[in-house]
Computed example of a mutant assay.
Amino acid sequence: MMLPTHAFTGLVLALPVALAMPEVGTAALVAGFLGGVFPDFDMYVGHRKTLHYPVYFSTLAVAVATLALLLPTAATVAAAVFLLAAAVHSVTDVFGGGLELRPWEGTSDRGVYDHYRERWIAPYRWVRYDGAPEDLLLSVTLAVPLLYTLEGSLQWLVVASLAVAVVYTAVRRLLPRIAETLFNRDVVSKLPNPALAYVPTRYREE
């Protein structure tokens, strides 16, 4: 799923905490947003493997959430929400498409890497690919309660993220063609090894 969808998921997870504990509300919401997008920081370095931990994030989230219940401070609540959002991101990517250049073709058996079992989890493709119409629908659905509830800069963050989601969905199927132009074999073959390490595998394979 696309980044705005994950960001909105993290915010929605944090929303009940913010409403129940307004004294730590901002910390929880910011942590939810950051936790929702954090796993995708591995986009160009082992995507869905380097920072995606469906088992370990989930285990840590339960442990830290227990601590936050016993010792509810801004730090413990924010840490719990961050880990929960990162865990949900890592797990829900399994329900999207694979890692191929054109995920709507359904040719990849790699959804998310499970470090605990040391194997790739195959994609379910309930959301066919990141930026699919159903992905945008999910983003909009998640954004509605956020737009209704949040105020100020956080509300504008949701508006900006929703705009990104709409634009990304509109151009998503054009991106492989652009990638092929930017990362054609001649260009890739001339890249130094340190730079080549940051070119996603799907671009090199294609």
Rank of each mutant, 00 (worst) to 15 (best):
M2G: 07
P4H: 02
T5Q: 08
A7C: 05
F8T: 00
G10H: 03
V12W: 02
L13P: 00
L13C: 10
A14C: 05
A18Q: 05
A20D: 14
G25W: 01
A27W: 05
V30D: 04
G32F: 02
L34V: 13
G35F: 08
G36I: 00
G36A: 02
F38T: 07
F41D: 03
M43N: 11
L51A: 10
P54H: 02
V55N: 08
Y56F: 15
F57T: 03
T59H: 05
V64M: 11
T66D: 10
L71I: 14
P72T: 08
P72L: 08
A74V: 04
A74Y: 03
A78Y: 04
A80W: 04
F82K: 05
V88H: 03
S90I: 04
T92C: 12
D93W: 00
D93I: 04
G97W: 00
G97N: 01
L99T: 08
L99A: 10
T107D: 11
S108G: 07
P123S: 10
W126A: 11
P133I: 08
E134G: 04
E134C: 05
S139Q: 13
V140R: 07
T141R: 10
V144Q: 05
L146C: 11
Y148C: 13
L150V: 02
Q155N: 09
L157T: 12
S161W: 06
L162T: 02
V164E: 10
V166I: 14
Y168D: 10
T169R: 06
R172D: 12
P176G: 09
R177A: 13
I178A: 14
A179L: 15
A179V: 09
E180T: 11
T181W: 15
L182T: 09
F183K: 01
R185Y: 04
V187E: 06
K190D: 10
V199Q: 09
R204A: 08
E205A: 13
